[in-house]
Nucleic acid binder design. Structure first.
Lengths: 343, 343
DNA sequence: CCGCAAGGTCGAAACGTTTCGATAGGAGTA
DNA sequence: TACTCCTATCGAAACGTTTCGACCTTGCGG
């Protein structure tokens, strides 16, 4: 691999002139510049990124750390990040954030290989985030809010609470009466907020939100299926279920089918996220759409701003919206039916 | 950020001793080593990865370049790569391979930021691959085969031809007679091979494979829908369609529904890839499963071997298998029906 | 008591850039 | 002619490591 020194010798100039020719073209005479460029082309010279990064003390690279890479859910997010990163000339690399693998997160964040990070992984603790983060490595966090904020740990979130509220309102206007909630793991802030919003809607409508059963599952399809089974095994028969994410809603759908309960005729179902699958299950899933692309863009913007020293910007909260599909009935159950079957 | 020099001073030893303490512990006296470690902990010292990489002349990082990141399809692949990379102590970073973006591929591959790459992106030309690749940057290619091979451009593929054959055999044993093919873009080797295998099955069964209509689409859901419409608009009514990937098969499913053709009763449908969605559409899609996880592992293995100087290994071809779901009938259409409707 | 090997430590060079300050030459001005 | 001021170029230092060869102790055997 040709180095700047090779080019310098071949072009009969000093190393610094070659570097200048590339980085500050105006400072070297036209003739010499052309000669250098020609020689460089000849030798297939490419500046060595690592050496450059060492010298200039930053990498122009930012990392996106994800819990897993499945789903267009994340794909959209990354597209947003990239589109925005391009505008600042930053390179985006994606990595699965596996806390304890030697080759993973640590190497990227802690060895100065990136100038910033966007993290979406509940498994990385707030503590380690705070420890990693600093003026030379701001971190945008996409899945939690209050607990982590500081000058260099910046939350960007969707309005989970508002989304939960939208779900609640919608079911209420449809006239459902007997609700059930399938939430995520207890430590998921997102899940808590969605639940909170949902209950707020119920409360505002003077419904007995305290008596609505809340079952928690794993945020996965199987988790949702299992949680729903636990719910139904109590004998309770809700006429509408709000699942804290689409994966669980889809799991719920399977369990409902297994129990012979028709969706949406006997039980309405609403999810959260609007993953691609939601459109394809039958019936298609009514859900709350999260603006993943916009979240990605906003995250990258905040990161970029912070990297340029703009501190103390107001937190970003993007709104969600309701997507009505077939898993909720246009004509709701009549009010007043008996919620408990004779199980 | 503390440097090795800071640690050295604080521990009253030379810089080299500190480095030794970390990298060749046996070469420094136990007492000093402990002292150094203590001081390093105190100062929160982390070696600077970039400086290290520059000195040792490699990065222990490999890049996975993907056309896009959607789908558990790629997620599985990456999991395979990572599991294998861990065993060699390599860090994996993923990037969308967007040929002409300044911050993308070029920076990663051409500026010496990675020691190897795994590429799955039909848009990167064989030429640029050959140009990038070399002893210091072997590249494993996952989506093409003959055209690119060299010592440092190594193909790892699924047996697309065999998969196409499996699809063909299966439809034949079910007794279908009037086939149609929805292929991907003309320049996709994968698609060609799948078609070739499919036709081989037909030929072996003495069926008129030359007369089977072949429509090409975009490898996307919409592409499949559109291609299917073009097919049906000719008036031809196949009783079985082989789509060269699942996305297109799902698109086809939609068009078939629009034309009032029931799947699988009036038209059987088989796809390729076994993406997650395949299980959820209705009817669930019969398809050819590609072993993405294994492909990822195999790719990483080959890469690692090549990086260690093992050249000329035999090409890797992993086999596919048939996954039977609802889009093909258990009881096939009777032979001899009229394939052309009165359109 | 001397010489030598082994163990422990160190200084310096190297990796390939960028950039600061200096220098040389030439043009313009007085 | 002598001075200043540009412009084009250069040399050297710096970024933070790793590693090679050298050096200095010690302890031991002869």
């Amino acid at each position: 691999m040709a180095t700047v020194r090779d080019v310098a010798e071949a072009a009969k100039v000093s190393v610094s002139t070659v570097s200048l020719a590339f980085n500050q073209p105006s400072r070297v005479a036209e003739a010499t510049r052309l000669r250098i460029l020609a020689v460089a082309g000849e030798l297939q010279y490419r500046p060595h990124g690592i050496a450059r990064d060492l010298r200039i003390r930053h990498t122009n690279t930012i990392a996106v750390l994800l819990h897993n890479l499945s789903g267009p859910f994340y794909s959209e997010l990354i597209r947003g990040v990239e589109d925005e990163a391009d505008r600042s000339g930053l390179t985006t690399i994606v990595s699965r954030a596996t806390p304890n693998r030697p080759g993973g997160t640590i190497r990227l964040l802690h060895e100065g290989r990136v100038d910033g990070a966007i993290v979406l992984d509940p498994l990385i603790s707030a503590d380690s985030l705070r420890q990693y983060a600093g003026p030379r490595l701001p971190i945008v966090v996409l899945d939690r809010t209050i607990s982590v904020a500081s000058d260099y740990v910046i939350p960007v979130v969707a309005d989970h609470e508002g989304g939960g509220y939208q779900a609640g309102r919608f079911l209420i206007t449809l006239g459902y009466q007997h609700y059930a909630l399938i939430t995520g793991p207890a430590d998921s802030t997102d899940s808590q907020l969605r639940q909170k919003g949902f209950f707020r809607a119920l409360r505002e409508a003077n419904l007995q939100w305290q008596q609505v059963p809340v079952i928690s599952g794993l945020f996965t399809e199987d988790g949702g299926a299992e949680a729903t089974a636990r719910l139904l095994d109590t004998g309770y028969r809700p006429d509408a279920i709000f699942a804290a994410n689409d994966e669980m809603a889809i799991g719920a759908m399977q369990t409902l089918a297994r129990y012979g309960l028709a969706v949406p005729d006997e039980v309405a179902l609403i999810g959260f996220d609007d993953i691609r699958l939601a459109r394809y299950v039958s019936p298609p899933l009514t859900t709350i759409h999260q603006p993943m692309y916009d979240l990605g863009r906003a995250a990258m913007q905040r990161l970029s701003d912070t990297m340029q020293g703009k501190l103390g910007l107001p937190p970003v909260v993007l709104s969600t919206h309701l997507v009505i599909r077939g898993s909720t009935a246009a004509s709701p159950t009549k009010a007043g039916e008996v919620p408990y079957a004779g199980s």
